[in-house]
Design a protein around this nucleic acid. Structure first.
Length: 852
RNA sequence: GGGCGAAUAGCUCAGUUGGGAGAGCGCCUGCCUUACACGCAGGAGGUCACAGGUUCAAGCCCUGUUUCGCCCACCA
């Protein structure tokens, strides 16, 4: 599976989310999976395979390594093809493509040549970050600095002509390559030593004492040993002072002959020990103190980086960065969350040249050939002779290019560039780039630069940055920590959709997600809820819904289309919408609008929460429960089934980008569908469904039912026991309850239900005000007068408290004068309602107290 | 050293223009009610890090402090 895990799970989920969502909105999207990173992963896999057989890569030639890689691929071909197929990709690997020799190399070579001809690619001696384990130079971005406990060693260097000075270093083995000692020019105590000569212990080399601004007089001893060949700062100082380079560590991390016969051939860390022993013997090791500092490590293999002097290929970045800064400053590309814009800009303003050569076997080889006389031939197609002298004796540069050198062409090279293809015309530039903030520099910035340089346009308009998935303790997932679960295991356990839904819902924009497996239960439970609700609706349709579409065979046209124009025109019957039908359609409309608004504002987590809330807390908890009355009762069931199917269908559309597989499956099972859910438009509203009257009715209904349930729970009335229920209504509001009566009976589990302005409230009843209404439950036998008194008093205290807060607010003249009108009105309404509730509670208390 | 982010229920976190403190999990009570125990109903639980300020009104805006985290940077 290693070959497929090229992106991180969250990013890939979100990317796929956008693709589905945009597609449903009618956008064209092209998804080209797999990158050259798969090649890097493959190299790792092949290396591991070889290592298991006791073969080290370094022992092989490039050709031999590629032979092994091809053999490995042949062996695993079927498995890889199958896995890619599961991801919806096909694979046709030729040997050339697999080894990156020809086809894909073309665009990369073209780019290399063009930049070379513009003098934007050059070769130079520079201090590079060398990974001795991988045997290659790596870029600054691939070096991760980690705090490590270490030692600071103080070493005495004698001065010619008497006296001595003491340097402090964390890397004593590099002293063998020292060519100077430096002090700060501002260091009054030491600057008079400038111009004198120190003698390098163990070696005896003469070292000039120089002054340089880079030296901090406060740090260590104030004297710095200078090793231009093995330290980036020292290298720069060496350039400034024309110091010689003495290379004492080679590319395998072993000491060279220049390190002296006592040390040559030793591993760098073994040498450190030996140097210290030798210094101690000579009595020049003054002291050793514990010191914590950042050590650079290769982020792929965790090997400590060795800064080395090396001849490498570089890209000159500043000319490319200029236009890439401008497009972001002009807003042609925006970042979300916006703060990353500044991160991008400040990096681009301080951009440094990019070291692109790598000594790996796997990768696009550098298209440069050398002849015996040292002439360079830079060409797209393999040359047969030297461009300068015509010699046929030419050899290609052994190095390959940094993976990112092909990746930065990602928005256009897979579309056929440099040919002018239809794909390029249609799909470039694209809309959204989804990625993690950790590769803004690696990839995002470089894609922008490459696209502007070679396509003369931006590659994408929006950069959406997801957080990073971390483990429960906030640590980055990494192989060495072993804290990354295998997504396939998780998917087996919880399901793909549950995994995705949970990640999306728990990822606030641009913030990291702490991954704890238990969190996935939320998504699993929700997906199960969708499934179960659909099951109930499907079975209702199966039993009673046959006549719904007027005898048309299921699958004859989209139900949504039929249901439009206020939902009824083309149906085979005239649906009689009850108040709860109008409410759920109105709620669906509200949810669709909110979800749309959240998505357009890039708040995926809010969109997910909203659709979760609608489906579970509104549709399932209230509408489905109410629907059961008609579904399982007598009478015409067609209207309720029509509304159920419609609401479910629209919900599935809304859910689809979050829960793609299960919703697609359920959609196929709906009677009115014969297409893919993915092919439908994403609902942004349900035109004409908003119904404030129905919403208000539902609010009252919910209040009344909840009040009744509350009383039931308080008196421990078994759910299977039916109760008697009364609702006292304000004058003239009896009619409002007429429609709700059946629903209230059902959801409050009552067998007798009286309502109206005149219903009685006597001793032995529990009561609870709901705005201008009042729920009354006779409690024959169950009534506990003391408990009821206590409950009413508690309720009274709460209402009184709220009321006094509201009174205080409204008696504040400034509030009434300055606050927005609707805020004041709302406060007044609230005060009215609280007043009414309070008087009802007092009335109840009076009844109990007067009769006891 | 510079820049950025975070601090809200026991835990993990939402809270978009300032106006009734929210979710999931966990906990307590009662339920296997003909879609779902991966469930249903009800409930407890918060000085919104601290100190000031602006405002009729602050979790939200401003200033400062504390504690965590991330990124960048050539302190050997």
């Amino acid at each position: 599976t290693g070959i497929l895990h090229v992106g991180h799970v969250l990013g890939d989920s979100v990317q796929d989310f956008f693709i589905r969502w945009k597609h449903m909105l009618g956008y064209n999207t092209l998804f080209v999976p797999g990158t050259d990173h798969a090649g890097i992963a493959t190299q790792k896999v092949v290396e591991n395979d070889l290592a298991a057989r006791g073969i080290m890569r370094r022992e092989l030639s490039r050709a031999e390594f590629l032979e092994h890689a091809w053999a490995w691929k042949e062996k695993h071909h079927e498995q890889i093809v199958k896995q890619l197929k599961n991801l919806g990709c096909s694979l046709d690997w030729t040997r050339e493509a697999f080894t990156l020799d020809a086809a894909r190399s073309h665009a990369v070579r073209e780019v290399f040549v063009r930049l070379y001809e513009k003098s934007l690619i050059y070769r130079g001696n520079y201090m590079v970050n060398w990974c001795p384990a991988c045997g290659t130079a790596i870029s600054d971005e691939e070096v991760k600095y980690n705090e490590r406990d270490s030692q600071l060693y103080w070493i005495r260097y004698p001065l010619r002509g008497g006296g001595s000075l003491v340097v402090a270093t964390t890397r004593p083995e590099t002293m063998l390559g020292d060519t100077a000692v430096a002090v700060s020019p501002d260091d009054a105590d030491k600057k008079d030593l400038v111009g004198r000569t120190a003698l390098l212990p163990l070696i005896g080399r003469e070292l000039p004492v120089i002054a340089d601004d880079a030296v901090d007089p406060e740090f260590g001893s104030g004297f710095v040993k200078i090793t231009p060949a093995h330290d980036p700062n020292d290298f720069e100082m060496g350039e400034r002072h024309n110091l010689p380079h003495v290379v004492v560590i080679d590319r395998e991390g072993n000491m060279t002959e220049a390190a002296g016969s006592a040390f040559s051939g030793l591993d760098r860390f073994a040498c450190r020990k030996k140097v210290l022993e030798a210094l101690d013997e000579e009595g020049v090791l003054v002291k050793t103190e514990p010191y914590r500092h950042a050590v650079g490590e290769h982020d792929r293999c965790q090997t400590v980086i060795e800064p080395l002097l090396s001849r490498e290929w570089f890209v000159k970045m500043q000319p490319l960065a200029e236009p890439a800064i401008q497009v972001v400053e002009r807003g042609e590309i925006d970042f979300y969350p916006p703060r990353w814009r500044n991160v991008y800009l400040s990096w681009m303003h301080n951009i440094r040249d990019w070291c692109i050569s790598r000594r790996l076997w796997w990768g696009h080889r550098i298209p440069v050939w050398y002849c015996a006389d040292g002439h360079l031939t830079v060409a797209i197609d393999d040359p047969t002779e030297c461009a300068a002298c015509g010699s046929g004796d030419i050899t290609q540069d052994e190095d390959v290019l940094d993976t990112w050198f092909s990746s930065w062409l990602w928005t256009f090279s897979p579309l056929g560039w440099p040919r002018k293809t239809r794909e390029l015309e249609v799909f470039h530039p694209t809309d959204v780039l989804v990625t993690g903030s950790e590769i803004i520099f690696f990839w995002v910035a470089r894609m922008i630069m490459a696209s502007l340089e070679f396509m003369k346009e931006v590659p994408f308009r929006h950069v959406f940055l997801t957080g990073i998935v971390r483990d429960g303790q906030g640590r980055k997932m990494s192989k060495s920590l072993g804290n990354s679960p295998d997504p396939l295991d998780i998917i087996d356990k919880y399901g793909t959709d549950a995994f995705r839904f949970t990640l999306v819902m728990l990822s606030p924009p641009g913030r990291d997600v702490f991954f704890v497996e238990e969190k996935l239960e939320m998504g699993r439970n929700f997906v199960n809820k969708i499934w179960q609700a659909s099951r109930m609706i499907a079975s209702a349709y199966g039993r009673y819904g046959g006549e719904l579409l007027g005898g048309k065979a299921p699958g004859a046209g989209s139900f949504a289309a039929l249901w439009n124009e206020r939902y009824k025109k083309p149906l085979a019957f005239e649906p009689e919408l009850q108040w709860e039908d109008r409410w759920v359609l109105s709620a669906l409309d509200g949810a669709a609008r909110d979800v749309d608004e959240n998505l357009r504002g890039w708040r995926l987590n809010d969109a997910a929460s909203r659709v979760y809330e609608f489906f579970w807390s509104e549709f399932c908890d209230w509408y489905l429960e109410l629907a059961k009355i008609r579904l399982y009762g007598e009478g015409d069931k067609r209207s309720v089934i029509a509304v159920l199917l419609f609401t479910l269908g629209e919900s599935l559309k809304m859910l689809h980008p979050f829960v793609p597989y299960v919703t697609e499956e359920l959609w196929a099972a709906l009677p009115m569908t014969d297409d893919l859910l993915l092919e439908n438009r994403y609902p942004v509203d349900i035109a004409g469904a908003a119904d404030p009257g129905a919403d208000e009715r539902m609010e009252l209904f919910r209040g009344l039912v909840t009040a009744a349930r509350n009383i039931r729970a308080l008196y421990r009335i078994n759910p299977s026991t039916r109760i008697e229920l009364r609702v006292k209504t304000p004058e003239g509001s009896r009619k409002a309850l007429e429609e709700m009566a059946a629903g209230i009976k059902q959801l409050a589990r009552a067998d007798r239900f009286d309502y109206g302005p005149e219903v009685s409230k006597e001793k032995g009843t529990a009561s609870s005000p709901v705005g201008g209404f009042e729920v009354i439950v006779p409690l024959s036998g169950v009534a506990d007068i003391k408990a009821e008194l206590e409950r009413l008093r508690a309720e009274k205290r709460k209402v009184e408290h709220d009321l006094s807060t509201m009174e205080k607010k409204l008696s504040n003249k400034d509030f009434v004068r300055k606050a927005k009108e609707d805020v004041v009105n709302r406060a007044r309404d609230r005060r009215e309602a609280l007043h009414t509730e309070l008087s009802k509670i007092e009335e109840s208390l009076n009844i109990i107290e007067s009769q006891s």
